[in-house]
C-alpha cells in the first residue's frame, strides 16, 4: 500500500468513526471494516482513544468567577457605553481589587435584586406558582372570577392588573375556561388563568418575563408531586401546573400556545 493509499484509508475510517460520511461513503467504510482486520483494529484504537478522552479530558464547566465577570460586563455595557474588547483584560495582580470594585459597582448602580432574579428564576418563583395552585384546590375556590367567557375574564384581569393578559378559549380542545385569579409570586401579583379537564384544574400563571433563564421551549418538571411546565414566549413567560398526568398537561400547553399565538399574531390595530 502506498503512503497515499494508507492516508486515504485512515481518513475514510476516521470520517466513518466521526459519522461524517454520506451513505455511499459509509458503505465503503463498512466493506473495508468487514474485510480487513487491521482496519478493525484501527477502529478499536479510535474508540479506545475517544473513551479515554471522555474520561480524562471532558468538557469543563466554566468557573463561576467567569460567569460573574461576564454578567457584570453585560450590565455595565449598558450604562457605560460599549467596552472595547481589549479594555477589560484583567491585570492579574490587581484581580482582587478589581473584584471588589465590581461588587461595589453592582451594589451601588444596579442593586443585587436584578442579578438575583436573573440567576434564580425560574427556581425562585416556581414554588409560589405551586403553592398558589395547591391553595386554590384546598380552598375549593380556584378562581376569583368564575367565567367560561374569555371576554369576561380578560377585562376583569385588566381591571386588577396593568397587563394585557392573553386569555384563550380551549373548550374545543377539551380544556374549558373556568376563570382566573390573582396569585402572588415573589412580591408581585400575577394573573393566573384556570382551565378544567374532567375534574382536574390547570392553573396557568403569566410571570414577569424578566429572567433569561426561562426555557424557550416548554420544559416539564415535577414539583411537590405536580407536573409543572414552564416556557417563554416573545413577551411573556408562563408556568402551567395541574394534577393531570404530565402528558396531558403538555398537551394542554401545546393547545394553549397554539391558541395564544393566533391571538398574538393578529395584526396590530392601528
Amino acid at each position: 500500500m502506498s503512503e497515499n493509499e494508507k492516508q486515504n484509508r485512515a481518513l475514510l475510517l476516521q470520517a466513518d468513526f466521526d459519522q461524517e460520511l454520506d451513505a455511499a461513503g459509509a458503505v465503503k467504510a463498512e466493506r473495508l471494516l468487514a474485510g480487513d482486520a487491521r482496519a478493525r483494529e484501527d477502529r478499536e484504537r479510535l474508540d479506545a482513544l475517544r473513551r479515554t478522552l471522555r474520561r480524562h479530558a471532558a468538557r469543563e464547566a466554566a468557573p463561576e468567577t467567569l460567569r460573574t465577570r461576564l454578567l457584570v460586563q453585560l450590565e455595565s455595557s449598558n450604562g457605560q457605553g460599549r467596552i472595547a474588547a481589549g479594555y477589560c483584560r484583567f491585570a492579574r495582580p490587581s484581580w482582587r481589587v478589581y473584584a471588589g470594585s465590581i461588587v461595589a459597582t453592582i451594589v451601588v448602580t444596579l442593586g443585587l435584586q436584578h442579578l438575583v432574579e436573573e440567576l434564580a428564576a425560574p427556581d425562585r418563583f416556581m414554588p409560589y406558582v405551586v403553592t398558589g395552585h395547591m391553595r386554590s384546590q384546598i380552598s375549593g375556590q380556584p378562581v376569583d372570577v368564575a367565567s367560561s367567557d374569555q371576554h369576561t375574564v380578560k377585562p376583569w384581569l385588566a381591571s386588577k392588573l396593568p397587563l394585557a393578559v392573553t386569555v384563550v378559549d380551549l373548550a374545543a380542545e377539551g380544556f374549558p375556561l373556568v376563570g382566573a385569579r390573582i396569585d402572588i409570586v415573589g412580591a408581585t401579583p400575577v394573573p393566573t388563568l384556570v382551565y378544567k379537564r374532567r375534574e382536574h384544574l390547570v392553573s396557568v400563571a403569566e410571570l414577569q418575563p424578566r429572567s433569561v433563564n426561562y426555557p424557550e421551549v416548554p420544559a416539564l418538571r415535577m414539583m411537590e408531586g405536580y407536573p409543572v411546565v414552564v416556557w417563554k414566549e416573545k413577551h411573556r413567560t408562563y408556568a402551567a401546573i395541574s394534577d393531570l398526568p404530565p402528558a396531558e398537561l403538555e398537551a394542554f400547553v401545546a393547545a394553549f400556545r397554539r391558541a395564544a399565538s393566533k391571538i398574538e399574531s393578529v395584526p396590530a390595530r392601528n
Partner: peptide, 10 residues
C-alpha cells in the same frame, strides 16, 4: 478565563 471573556465581549 481571560480569553473567553475577551471572546464574549467581541
Amino acid at each position: 478565563e481571560d480569553v473567553v471573556q475577551d471572546a464574549c465581549l467581541r
